[in-house]
Nucleic acid binder design. Structure first.
Lengths: 240, 240
DNA sequence: TCTTATTTTAAACAATTTCTTTAAAAAATA
DNA sequence: TATTTTTTAAAGAAATTGTTTAAAATAAGA
């Protein structure tokens, strides 16, 4: 069975960012083209029918907004805008020029992959092969429910309030139940690409997560399993 | 399907490490070139299209990070960085300069081989745009199942909790059923390259492994067979 | 903008688990 | 039976994880 993979154009002037995005997106089976210059990017986008474009706002040649605007004159290719933190003011504005979504830098690789998948799903008429972590909006375990749209976590009907990192960590693990992740991998995927901190930071977040879950249900807390010498995983049926 | 043998450049100032890596990788049919100096390595990497580079961080001539950075200006050769334990702070940072993976020294040869294979698989996959048949990392025997992703071992449906060494030992043997491994070889492959301990250590781990398996199923325990005067092996149908 | 509250990170120590070594008992071989 | 090899058991050493605490970073509110 042959499946078509989506092709994505990544536009950023920083090579480091391009490579990072490329790596994570290729891991999801997407085909990646790169551009570092706005006007070159526009030309590429006009010539080839990309399924999605990841577009940095600040660019040499032609800024992201303009690229998007010009592109929209002839094409409806979905666009996700990348904006640096200081440029946040332009956020809503982005939608006016036809941006479908935006991500604030520094982002976590996980976040980008999720947004890309979501947008592709929304906008695709053809179905793409989405292998691994099938992004659902609600993940349900025996004692735990994660509603990603609402960004809400419930343990046995009781809502548990988590900090951003706690939530992201839990959500990441929950997307691949039973799979063990090393602390390195968690830091790489869940934290943003600018963070190069201590591996034990993960432990601390896991501890707090367990603590909060445990307040409601011991079973829920025990879902987060330590694999000695390896890392952590979430187990659906750990309450044995 | 016949695979072309990949060529790998091994860069480390310690000859002992280079030879060790070379030996293990050649055993997997890879072609190995060596370099002990950073700037020489860069030159070699630029001249020849390697399929992968194993790069030590601390190097004479030019440090690994710089080598990787310079290389990235013109090539996308996959790089695995080798970092000593003290340099851990730089761990995740590797991504900044375009490292694809990293391994902390001292490593076990088995680990390196697995990582190399994984990265080659990843990078060749993207090269040919082939969708990977969802490879499950599960080894199944009549009474024993090893799920490597979950790091979980089941004996007749019952989960058995193993320590890291026990697990690695079992997993190693299970990857080559019926093949006998001497204690020397097991120590060399499964333990890290700095360990020169007692051969009896293997026996102890085998003993505990059998013990744990035996608690659930005698047949499973008997799969780990002693070959008198030689070593140990795993046998799929030892319960006859 | 400044202040306050929250969240995140990191370091230090404690608790736990695992590993290695050792030596004696058991088993296999010749 | 004598010898070699393997198995078993136990204790100290080593490594990993859990916990606490405080500082740093970030976000929110006045």
């Amino acid at each position: 069975m042959k499946e078509k993979t989506a092709s994505i154009l990544v536009v950023d002037d920083e090579e480091r960012i391009r490579k990072l995005l490329k790596m994570y997106l290729e891991r999801e089976q997407y085909t990646i083209d790169e551009a570092e210059d706005g006007s070159v990017a526009l030309q590429m986008a006009l010539e080839k029918d990309y399924d999605l474009i990841l577009l940095d706002l600040m660019l040499p040649g032609m800024d992201g907004e303009t690229v998007c605007e010009k592109l929209r004159e002839s094409k409806a290719t979905p666009v996700i805008m990348l904006t640096a933190k200081g440029e946040e003011a332009n956020r809503v504005q982005g939608f006016e020029v036809g941006t479908d979504d935006y991500i604030v830098k520094p982002f976590s690789p996980r976040e980008v992959v999720l947004r890309v998948k979501a947008l592709l799903r929304r906008s695709s008429k053809t179905k793409f092969l989405e292998t691994e972590p099938t992004t659902k909006n609600v993940i349900v375990f025996p004692h735990l429910t994660i509603d990603h749209d609402a960004h809400r976590v419930k343990v046995d009907q009781h809502e548990v309030s988590l900090t951003p990192k706690e939530y992201e960590l839990l959500y990441y693990l929950a997307q691949n139940p039973d799979k063990v992740f090393s602390r390195e991998q968690l830091l790489k995927d869940v934290w943003n690409y600018e963070f190069f901190g201590d591996l034990r930071t993960v432990d601390t977040h896991v501890k707090r997560l367990r603590e909060k879950l445990n307040k409601v249900s011991e079973e829920a807390a025990e879902m987060i399993v330590t694999v000695w010498g390896v890392g952590y995983k979430i187990e659906a049926d750990a309450a044995t």
